Each structure stands twice: as C-alpha cells, then as structure tokens.
Amino acid sequence: MIHEVDGLLRKLLQGGALTGSDIDIVFDAPTGEWAARRNAPVLDCYLYDIREDVKRRERGMAPVRDERGITVSRRRAPRWFRLSYLLTAWAKRPEDEHRLLSAALATLMPQEVLPPSGLPEPLAGLGLSVPLTVAGVQAESRSLAEIWSALGGMLKPSIDLVITVPFPSYPDYDAGPPVTGGALVRVRELDGPLEDDGRTHQPRHLTRVAEGARLR
C-alpha cells in the first residue's frame, strides 16, 4: 500500500503549480552523500515515519456486497496509518529551492481531503476519503532537527507532509448463503384449564409462514 501512496504523491506534485515542469520527484533519504550527487532541480519526499492512527480504529465486521447487493463476505474495519514525509527542494540556489517549496505548497494545500475517485487501487476500492495534512503541527515524537541529524546532513527548509491512509484488514470471512424463500413454521399452543368457568382448551396447531430457515 505504501508504494501506491508514493505514486499518489508524485501525481499530486506533478500537477497544480508544477504542471509542465521538468522537476524530478524522488523518495530518497536526503543524506549528505545523496545531496552531493544532485545536478538538477528535484523535490524529495522522504518517508521518515509510519505509525497507526489509533483514534480511527474501529471494531466489528462490515458486510461486503456483490453487484446485486447480496452479502458475500464480511470484513474487519480497515486500520488507518499516518505516513509522514519530509518534503525538501534541491537546486543550485536557495532562491530556486524556495520557489519549488512555494509551488509545492500551492499544489498540495487545496488537497486537504482526497476523494476515493482520485485514489489509486486498492485504496479507491475501499470507498474512503484520505486526509492530507500539509505543514501542520508535528505529532510524531521525533523532531525534524533529530531527523536531519540522523541523516547526517545540515538542517534544511522542509514541509512536513502527512497522508493518513486505510490499510485493509485481512482475511475476509465468507458469509452464509442468502435466504431465497419462505419456510413453514409449526407452532403448538397448549392451554390448560381456566379457573373462571372450568372449561379446558384442547391442544391446537397454528401454522404460519415466515422468512428464514425451516424450524422443526
């Protein structure tokens, strides 16, 4: 699923203010060695953190229906995960890097909620919208300064980008066969003697038609 999110992010950044540009979108760790090899402008989306959004966790099973609306299986609710990217621009001059970051902001800010129709499979098949947070308050325990230190590079202007995506919970569980007709249910009602006039009622049979399995 993560590689589908990478592809989605690349598609988003290649549109908007960056439409028609020849800027490369890569997902490399921006280490000092990597930066020294760059000879063309690039936007780097480094995935630095993956963790579950436990506030979105749901219990229970949901029905999976076919094209006729019949339940064919049952599925656990998906688990949501926060994918945090460090978005940086690399060019020969800081001014050019700032222009790239501005273009990235202008492109991503209108995309706060991504509808299912704009998502790749299998995300689109879940029928759920995906939230995207651009330059929000950092919720992870590690600071950006710590991340740069771990990468062995100098602190650089960056955009913290978080995409919260649902991951399907497997496996699906088969549902029982659908009910296709009525069944005959026999109910025996026994009445004892009544105290008010001394009469008694004989056993009698009641016949009813109900939807469901045949009861004996």
Rank of each mutant, 00 (worst) to 15 (best):
R56V: 08
G212L: 10
T88Y: 08
A135L: 10
T200G: 12
P157A: 06
D191A: 08
P41I: 08
T207M: 13
G118W: 07
G136T: 03
T180N: 13
E97S: 04
P30Y: 04
G20P: 06
I23T: 12
L43C: 02
P41A: 11
L123T: 00
H201V: 15
S158Y: 05
L114E: 02
E52R: 15
L18I: 07
C45P: 03
S73G: 06
R142T: 09
L119M: 12
S129Q: 00
V134K: 00
G7I: 09
H201A: 15
R188F: 09
R82C: 15
D44S: 15
A145M: 05
C45F: 05
T207A: 09
G127M: 06
R204C: 10
G153Y: 05
V26P: 01
G69W: 05
S84Q: 04
G16A: 04
A104H: 05
E95Q: 11
G153R: 00
R208V: 13
A89L: 09
I163S: 03
S143R: 04
L155I: 11
P177C: 08
R37Y: 08
A150C: 03
V165E: 01
A213L: 15
P41Y: 09
N39H: 14
V162A: 06
R76C: 04
P193F: 13
D196K: 08
R208G: 12
R216C: 07
R37L: 12
H205A: 10
D196H: 13
R188H: 11
R199K: 10
R75D: 01
P131A: 14
V5W: 05
D22T: 08
S149M: 12
P63N: 06
G7D: 00
S117Y: 11
Y46P: 01
V165Y: 02
R65F: 10
G69F: 11
A145P: 04
E67P: 03
K156T: 07
A106R: 08
F81I: 10
L151R: 02
R65P: 04
L155C: 06
A17W: 04
G7T: 03
R186G: 09
R199P: 01
H201E: 15
I50P: 03
H201N: 13
P122R: 07
D6C: 10
P78N: 01
T133P: 07
E140N: 00
Y173E: 08
A124D: 00
R76E: 02
P110G: 06
L144P: 01
A104Y: 03
S21W: 09
R38N: 00
V42G: 05
G7H: 04
P178I: 11
G181R: 14
R68Q: 11
L12Q: 02
R186M: 11
A40L: 12
L8I: 05
L47P: 03
I23P: 00
G15T: 02
S84A: 12
D49Q: 14
I159W: 01
L8D: 02
D53Q: 13
Y173V: 05
L161P: 05
P171N: 04
P171R: 00
G212N: 02
P78K: 00
A40F: 10
Q202G: 13
A210R: 14
W148E: 02
A77I: 03
G125T: 07
E189I: 12
R208L: 15
R56F: 08
A213P: 14
L126I: 09
L128R: 05
H98P: 04
T107Y: 09
D96I: 04
A40V: 11
